[in-house]
Design a binder for these strands. Structure first.
Lengths: 255, 255
DNA sequence: CATGGCTGGTTTATGTCCTAAACGAGCGGG
DNA sequence: CCCGCTCGTTTAGGACATAAACCAGCCATG
């Protein structure tokens, strides 16, 4: 439509504005792995809302349409991103989900590992929670069947009945995903990073006196401690599902 | 993994397929309230992904652009939707956030009220959790300043210190929002409702034996009980923050 | 009673996206 | 040497959001 041979495409030029610090020059042929990896990186750097097929293409030094050869479409790409991020946990040497020293330790490692990746990819995490699950009948959906399997294995081997293992899975994953989603979404997520430097007219708080008074307490970032406490409380609760003899000692003190 | 051959995307002409059973004929002039209300209804019926300015316009018997006279844009509309849904709680006669018979009762009513609206608007709820908060410094963001204020008021009046009130707010809202988001997202949310009555390739579970074995336990919908238990556990935990003398009796039994 | 400005909704137009489909360039084996 | 494959590009078109011009009543005022 633009019949103007000399002008070098007055394209949205947004693409040019993107850091483009990606592996743009490292041309080496695409493949699904590389694309998804780049997508994760891109989202981490520019935010989810900036991810577009053409921009991701540019980021990889290629025309947007090229991606379609390796990825069925945008939705599928996002699924891949979620899966990729979620599966990072398995590569984490600190987690070692295989060699477990008891289920408490296992769950703690799992929780901390997940929290680590949530904080490492805050822009991606909302995706993890909102995307339709792979196995829809698993509630709630943790999105990685490998995880679920691993966790259920540990729990049943630790002496939990099938029913209780399932219950633990539900409580644990719901706590984890929910907690982390909120922690992450509380940070400057989602609102595009580059655009709208403005935001937050801060609204009028005058009609909320208590909120105003507690502002210092609420804005302190105690997420880490909160997380630990809530996690321990959960583990204590889980321990109650085991026959008394096998219960580990309580973690929290009724101060 | 990423292989998602279905890719519904039958999106042409979808507009015509929409029920259009909205207040299309009840022409009475628009206004922001009516628009947001219609948007909520529309999302409830057709899912978030179907909401588009033109479709919402059609739903109201009007041309899409008409909405822009009353709403600054799509994002703002969604903010309005979230706020509207969240504020339903205040109209709920079962909740009566003002007349409180103790903080435990208050929190229980709040939790159940919120759960009720989450289940009433499952398609909307993910928005509640993923949209940037009004007061960004409040962590986690419950999205309704009125709520937060009300809750903090009750807690401080019940004898919690400012610090503890804030801590309770964090724990409670994070639990609530997280839990409900997962419960809701576990249902058939997000995936367009009309389209894809389809397959669900169910993936191959053969490599996940335990998952397979526990399928019955995992697919049972025990969300309601789970919710009650987790809620009680949380309230027990909260009670520990009060000076001993004022603590209400424990709710759960160390069976 | 004209008339100029409102109000409220429509038309037109532009730009961004996603994505189907046709297209070519390089290449490796018959 | 040529056929067909792999990989990336071009072309094309449709869905959207949204700015901007537009127009039909309508109402108060000169």
């Amino acid at each position: 439509m633009v019949e103007d041979p000399d002008t070098p495409q007055a394209r949205g030029d947004m693409a040019a504005a993107i850091p483009a610090g990606g592996p743009g020059s490292g041309r080496a042929g695409l493949d699904q792995r590389r694309i998804i990896g780049a997508a994760v990186q891109f989202i981490d750097q520019n935010g989810l809302r900036m991810l577009t097929m053409q921009r991701l293409g540019a980021y990889l030094g290629v025309e947007g349409m090229a991606l379609y050869r390796y990825v069925p479409g945008r939705e599928a790409l996002l699924d891949g991103v979620v899966e990729s991020v979620v599966d990072e946990l398995f590569g984490d040497p600190d987690v070692h989900l295989e060699a477990h020293a008891g289920w408490v330790d296992y769950l703690q490692r799992l929780a901390h590992g997940l929290r680590r990746i949530a904080l490492a990819h805050p822009e991606v995490f909302p995706l993890v929670a909102t995307r339709p699950p792979a196995a829809p009948w698993v509630r709630p959906p943790l999105r990685s069947l490998r995880w679920i399997e691993s966790m259920l294995e540990v729990m049943t081997e630790a002496g939990f009945t099938d029913e209780n293992a399932a219950a633990v899975y539900r409580a644990f994953s719901s706590f984890l995903l929910g907690y982390l989603l909120l922690e992450v979404s509380a940070r400057g997520v989602e609102t595009g990073p580059v655009e709208e430097p403005d935001v937050s007219p801060v609204e009028d708080l005058s009609s909320y006196p208590i909120l105003q008074r507690l502002e210092p307490h609420l804005s302190i970032d105690v997420a880490a401690q909160d997380f630990e406490e809530a996690l321990e409380a959960l583990l204590d609760r889980v321990a109650l599902l085991l026959p008394r003899r096998r219960r580990p000692p309580r973690l929290t003190e009724d101060k």
